[in-house]
């Protein structure tokens, strides 16, 4: 006997579980669209998480906490940008080093937050609308950050399709030499994209430590930065599909918990594999059909100023 009353709250949980991934992956989409592969996402996220939580504990408003979390991610990204864009350090290794660094630094800073808990993050309840059955809680009963993440998806779709700046970012990512020849400052544009990616990862991390579970413990991102990186690939570097991928991954993660709750006799390890396997299968189906994968052609290639 399955009571379907759990469905709407389950969908809400999916949205909350997916939102950190949405922010982080969207940021990385912009970074990679400009041609830079930053594998330091996990490190930027966890710094956002610790700084966001620290601000809340220090009594700042949630808004301020998110601003500082974004700045923390941005600071980490700046380090990465200086090393890879100005000093031509290898981006893959630098990104991984950034992850090690961020996990260590956040643990060092965050060790003082043991056993501390922040209050629940307020939800935006739009009067009347959020009281509607089914659609009310599903569409109008979230916290402000969920709406920000959705708006960001729309904004980025529009940015890449319809703005000159978006076209320039794509041009830099697709052929940096040509973009440079036309007269664009490739390094500056890439730096901007890297910083944006860092800020968004910081927001994603802070969503975890301020909204989803208002606490901080070292390594609490637990690999979500890596999932976000995979989702960028899943999305073929398209913001709209990031949302799809994040909700798919988050959705299956939540649904498998529900399946367990019903007492279905499948070992939990197999159920826990499902989100990963499903993402592979769906991407395989999509890419088997599409001829082109849409990876920025200069992705991961160092641009060197010659003249």
């Amino acid at each position: 006997m399955m009571d379907l009353g759990f469905l709407i709250p389950a969908l809400q949980s999916i949205i909350i579980a997916s939102t950190p991934l949405v922010f982080t992956a969207l940021g990385e989409v912009v970074t990679e669209r400009a041609g830079v592969l930053n594998l330091g996402v996990e490190g930027m996220m966890i710094m956002g998480a610790v700084v966001g939580f620290a601000c809340v504990i220090a009594g700042f408003s949630p808004f301020t906490a998110f601003v500082f979390a974004a700045l923390a991610g941005l600071g980490m990204a700046l380090l990465f940008g200086i090393m890879t864009l100005l000093l031509y350090a290898n981006a893959v290794a630098t990104g991984l080093a950034l992850t090690l660094f961020g996990l260590g630094l956040s643990a060092l800073v965050g060790s003082q937050f043991v056993g501390l808990s922040a209050g629940a993050f307020p939800k935006v309840s739009i009067p009347v609308l959020s009281d509607l059955p089914v659609v009310g809680p599903l569409l109008f009963g979230h916290d402000a950050l969920v709406y920000v993440s959705l708006a960001l998806v729309v904004a980025l779709i529009w940015f890449f399709k319809h703005t000159r700046a978006g076209l320039i970012v794509r041009a830099v990512g697709d052929d940096h030499d040509a973009a440079h020849a036309i007269g664009y400052n490739v390094i500056a544009i890439r730096m901007g994209a890297v910083l944006f990616g860092g800020a968004m990862a910081g927001l994603g991390g802070a969503y975890l430590s301020v909204v989803q579970t208002p606490l901080f413990i070292e390594n609490m991102t637990a690999g979500r930065g890596w999932i976000a990186l995979a989702l960028v690939v899943f999305a073929s570097w398209r913001p709209g599909r990031v949302l799809l991928g994040a909700y798919l991954f988050g959705g299956i993660s939540i649904i498998q918990l529900h399946v367990q709750g019903f007492g279905i006799a499948i070992p939990s390890q197999i159920l826990s594999m499902l989100p990963y396997l499903a993402t592979i299968v769906v991407l395989t189906v999509i890419s088997a059909r599409a001829a082109q994968q849409g990876a920025p052609r200069s992705l991961g290639k160092t641009f060197k100023v010659t003249r």
Binding site: M83, A89, T94, F101, G104, L108
Partner: peptide
């Protein structure tokens, strides 16, 4: 945690 910070630093300089 110091190990991670120190490793990160070492790698940043090397790279």
């Amino acid at each position: 945690a110091v190990t991670g910070v120190f490793q990160g630093m070492l790698l940043f300089f090397l790279l």
